[in-house]
Amino acid sequence: MPNRISRSTILLPNSPSILASAAVGGKKEGEGPLREDFDLLSEDTTFGEKTWEKAEMRMQMDAESRALKKAGLHPEDIDVVFAGDLLNQCISSAYSLRGLAIPYIGLYGACSTMAESLMLASLFVDGGIARRAMAVTSSHFCTAERQFRFPLEYGGQRTPTAQWTATASGCLIVGEKNEPPYARAVCVGKIGDLGIKDLNNMGAAMAPAAADTLKTFFQDTGTSPENYDRIFTGDLGQVGSDLLYELMEREGIPLKGRHDDCGLLLYDRETQDVHAGGSGCGCSAGVLCGHILKLLKNGTYENVLFMATGALMSPTSVQQGESIPGIAHLVHLSRKPQ
């Protein structure tokens, strides 16, 4: 049974295993530093489909089928799937899973969806509600631009704080305790908002929520950054990461040197024109499912905190002058069970 030690932090005494994971990416992701870590990279970001929405759906299906294959499982072996994405009504997830007949719970956590889905999958398995649970999410640069910003061919200039939505999908399967890596604890984030309104500076909008979740988790567990090999945030980018350091510094928890941001790992900022870094559900999903879990599996890391961050606005709320609420969910992944 999960053991709730505070309002936010829940330990997982049964320490469910991540049985398998798969990461799929597009062309730009294939030109980045993590190209070796992806299971599938497509030069053609339409993934052979007619619309960008279908392309994103196809990409998610690829991640799901590859994760199942790597785990040696079939869809009917999965008791529940937690899935979400950035598109209105989470259509990428609903359509990618419509053929698999797995009990489905749709999530909206914006770019925090990978951590949110992994958290819920781990809780379900730890609590014995499910034997095996799937967590999957995706984002596609083209669908996100169409929905949140401008038509793709519109000539606009990005500001230096803008981030690049990753074309990527990550899927993982959580099962009863087996082999490392294990999920040992989760921390449910609270919505934080310090008044950032700039749609082109999401890192800054999400950093306060990230700082709050981290601080809460360290306090609840009596640990500090030194207890972990690496602390990964989802897509704070350069601006958000710098702000996170600043906020944590004020709390007396120095983070620099122990922290990496998936949005900064996925691309080479010098050569890939992504401004402040990558973003989107697929950014942290691809980096977790391809890169981080691999390093946990091969023993490079013993203990890792994975915290994906999300910006919970919509184009409507932004046009109405609202500021951007942020969220950050955290999962403690380890080679040792609880």
Binding site: P160, L194, I196, D212
Partner: peptide, 21 residues
């Protein structure tokens, strides 16, 4: 536990410093 104790105005200042022009 409360939100990090920092006002929106202070945060805007931090943001200005962190954001490249």
């Amino acid at each position: 536990m409360s939100q990090t104790k920092i006002t929106s105005r202070e945060y805007e200042e931090l943001n200005k410093k962190a954001s490249p022009g």
